[in-house]
């Protein structure tokens, strides 16, 4: 693999991803409206649900809107990752995945480039959401917007790698309704995105344990801490390990000799 070849391919993949995203106005629009609906309507009803308790990294008691914003940012990444892996399944049915995989570069590199490109394309929207959230008095320190970037990137990559893995084992687009029900919703609801761990523990220790082990919770906490200029090392480690594990599994899934890909008729 030559360096300049690899760079050109990455730029090409990134450019294609950007153009496609920008031309899908409807998807862009719903991606930004979704968290705002949660914030404006859902969160309004739970305003004081957290009471006077203090949950780190917040140094004082906070309104529910403030608590839920990092979770909603992570939700955006999750939906983006799933939409993008849906696009990959679609790509494969339509054939453009073949085009990517017959490029003269190692397959793991092509998949990594595709993953990185898709995450980078999704980040500006998350920032737009964070800026709009200021209207609801969710105002983290200015530097927090900088510090949250690596957290968003890492979390996005982890969720994207998960999506890549899903796309490598999912044969048809129809299966994606199942993915929504059995993957996205449980991952989102059984996490610390909507309620802090102590709230979940009150509801039931099983739920709290699931949420504590859910990698999506780690992504949420990583983002939450970073936004308030703190580094949550444990969460960062979990996210990183999950990223590597999901990505390696996805590479195996797309391997021409081993993966499920090779046993699939018509692909």
């Amino acid at each position: 693999m030559k360096m300049h070849h690899a760079c050109r391919a990455l730029t090409g993949i990134l450019r294609r991803e950007m153009r496609r995203t920008l031309r899908q106005r409807g998807r862009l629009f719903s991606a930004i409206v979704r968290p705002l609906v949660w914030l404006a309507i859902f969160a309004a009803g739970f305003r004081s649900v957290l009471g006077l308790s203090i949950t780190p990294p917040y140094q004082t008691y906070v309104l529910y809107e403030v608590y839920v914003v990092p979770g909603l940012a992570a939700m955006m990444l999750l939906f983006h990752a799933m939409a993008s892996s849906l696009a990959m399944v679609y790509d494969r049915e339509m054939g453009s995945m073949r085009l990517l995989l017959t490029a003269p570069l190692p397959r793991w590199y092509l998949l990594a480039a595709r993953l990185l490109a898709s995450v980078i394309v999704g980040l500006p929207l998350v920032y737009l959401f964070l800026v709009i959230a200021r209207y609801w008095d969710v105002r983290p320190p200015a530097l927090g917007y900088v510090a949250v970037f690596p957290a968003l990137l890492l979390s996005g990559l982890m969720l994207g790698a998960f999506g890549l893995l899903v796309s490598s084992v999912s044969t048809q687009m129809e299966n994606f309704a199942g993915v929504m029900n059995f993957v996205i919703f449980p991952m989102f609801f059984a996490s610390t995105a909507l309620y802090p761990l102590w709230r979940l523990a009150e509801a039931g220790p099983v739920l709290a344990t699931i949420a504590a082990w859910n990698p999506f919770s780690s992504a949420v906490e990583l983002i939450r801490f970073a936004l308030y200029l703190r580094f949550d090392a444990a969460s960062a480690l979990v996210v990183l390990i999950c990223l590597l594990a999901f990505f390696l599994a996805a590479v195996v899934g797309y391997d021409p000799g081993r993966g499920l890909w090779s046993r699939r008729p018509g692909s």
Binding site: A9, L99, A103, P104
Partner: peptide
């Protein structure tokens, strides 16, 4: 041009 980029042109 996307294809060309994949081939390193």
């Amino acid at each position: 041009r996307y294809h060309a980029a994949l081939h390193g042109l």
